[in-house]
C-alpha cells in the first residue's frame, strides 16, 4: 500500500524526457569522449607531456555519467547491468595510463602462469607467449576496441540517418535511388563486404570506419526511413512546410529528434555488432595492427599456443572481455527498449 502511495506522488519521468537531458549531459559525454579519441587515434602525434594528462578530465566525466545513468534508469535492472558493464570498460579505457599497470608491450617472463611471481612482478592473469603481462594488455586493449567501435558506429549512423531522412522525407525518385543502393549493399554478406573493402584500402583503423559504414549504413537508413515516413504526415511537419522552412531544416530539426528513441536502442545493439566485427577483422589480420594491445589481436596471437589447455587463458581472457562489453551493449539496448515501451 505504502509503495503505491509513494509512487503516486512522483509520477514516473518518461523515457523521452530522460534521454533528452539538457546540454550538461552532452558536455559530459564530450569531456569523456574527446580526450579518449585523441589519445587513441592520434596518440603518435601527441607530445609525451600532453599524452600524460590529456585523459585526466575524462575520468570524473565517466564516473559522473555512470552515476547519472544508474540513477535515471533505476527501474530497469537490465539497463543498469548493461550500463555497469559498458561503463566499467569505459572507465578502464580512460584511466589506463594512471592505473598501476606495467608496460603492456614489455616482454618479461614468457608463459608465466596466472598468479606467478617472476622478475619482481606479480602476473595476476599470467603472461603471454612473449612474456607480456596479460592483465595490463587486457585492460589497455579495451581502448582501441571501444574508440574504433564507437567511432565507426557513429559515422555509420550519421551517413545512414542522413540518407534515411532524404529517402523518407523527399520520397519519390530519391527514395527509389537510395533504397536501390541500400538493397544492393545489403545483399552482400557483411564479412565479404568487410574483407573486400579492407583488402582494397589496406588494414587500418580509419578504413575499418569506412568498412563498418558501408556495412551498417543501409540497415540504419532503412530504420530512419521508416520512422521518417511515419512522422512526415504529421501536422507539425505541414506547419513547418507552410512556414516555408527549408527541407534540410525540416529533416534535421523537425523529423530527426522524433526518431531518437528507436535510434538510440538500435545504436546500442549495433555497437555490439561493430565490436564483434572489429575484433573479428583484427583477428583476421585486416584490422588494427600490432604491437599495441587489442583484444582481437590478443586472440589472434594466442591461437597457436592456446591449443595447449594450460595456456588457454591467453585466449579466454580477451575473449571474455569482448563478450562482456558486447553483453553490456545488448543489455543496455534491451533495458532502454523495455523502458521506452512502458511509457
Amino acid at each position: 500500500m505504502t509503495t503505491a502511495n509513494i509512487s503516486l506522488d512522483t509520477a514516473p519521468v518518461p523515457f523521452n524526457v530522460r534521454i533528452r537531458q539538457p546540454t550538461a549531459l552532452i558536455g559530459l559525454v564530450l569531456l569523456m569522449w574527446v580526450p579518449l579519441t585523441l589519445y587513441v587515434m592520434f596518440g603518435p602525434f601527441l607530445s609525451d607531456t600532453l599524452k600524460s594528462f590529456v585523459l585526466l578530465p575524462a575520468i570524473p566525466a565517466t564516473v559522473a555519467l555512470y552515476v547519472i545513468a544508474v540513477t535515471s534508469w533505476r527501474e530497469s535492472p537490465v539497463a543498469i547491468i548493461g550500463a555497469t558493464l559498458v561503463f566499467f570498460w569505459l572507465f578502464v579505457a580512460v584511466s589506463a595510463p594512471y592505473l598501476p599497470l606495467i608496460d603492456p608491450n614489455k616482454p618479461l617472463a614468457p608463459f608465466a602462469e596466472m598468479g606467478a611471481y617472476k622478475k619482481d612482478h606479480w602476473f595476476l592473469l599470467g603472461a603471454d607467449f612473449k612474456g607480456r603481462d596479460m592483465l595490463s594488455r587486457d585492460l589497455w586493449g579495451c581502448q582501441r576496441v571501444l574508440v574504433w567501435g564507437v567511432s565507426a558506429t557513429l559515422v555509420a549512423y550519421a551517413v545512414g540517418a542522413f540518407f534515411g531522412l532524404l529517402a523518407g522525407y523527399l520520397s519519390g525518385w530519391w527514395d527509389q535511388a537510395i533504397s536501390l543502393v541500400c538493397n544492393i549493399l545489403l545483399s552482400f554478406p557483411v564479412m565479404v563486404l568487410f574483407i573486400l573493402i579492407l583488402n582494397y584500402l589496406g588494414p587500418s583503423g580509419f578504413n575499418i570506419v569506412i568498412a563498418v559504414t558501408f556495412a551498417s549504413a543501409p540497415a540504419i537508413m532503412r530504420i530512419v526511413r521508416g520512422l521518417t515516413l511515419d512522422t512526415r504526415s504529421r501536422d507539425y511537419i505541414f506547419a513547418a512546410q507552410t512556414r516555408g522552412e527549408h527541407p534540410l531544416r525540416i529533416m534535421i530539426f523537425e523529423l530527426l529528434p522524433n526518431a531518437r528513441g528507436p535510434i538510440i536502442v538500435d545504436a546500442c545493439l549495433r555497437l555490439g555488432y561493430t565490436t564483434v566485427a572489429i575484433t573479428t577483422l583484427t583477428f583476421l589480420g585486416l584490422g588494427l595492427q600490432p604491437p599495441d594491445p587489442d583484444w582481437g589481436l590478443m586472440i589472434k596471437e594466442s591461437t597457436k599456443v592456446a591449443m595447449v589447455w594450460k595456456f588457454s587463458y591467453m585466449l579466454l581472457i580477451p575473449a571474455l572481455s569482448v563478450s562482456s562489453l558486447i553483453l553490456g551493449f545488448n543489455l543496455l539496448a534491451d533495458g532502454l527498449r523495455e523502458m521506452s515501451l512502458r511509457d
Partner: peptide
C-alpha cells in the same frame, strides 16, 4: 517560392492537437 511576407500573411491552425506541435521542442 513565396516570399517571407506573403507566407506570414497566410497561416494555418491544424486539426489534431496531438499532432500540431513537434513533441521534441
Amino acid at each position: 517560392r513565396r516570399d517571407k511576407h506573403t507566407i506570414s500573411r497566410l497561416q494555418m491552425v491544424f486539426q489534431n492537437p496531438f499532432d500540431t506541435l513537434n513533441p521534441s521542442h
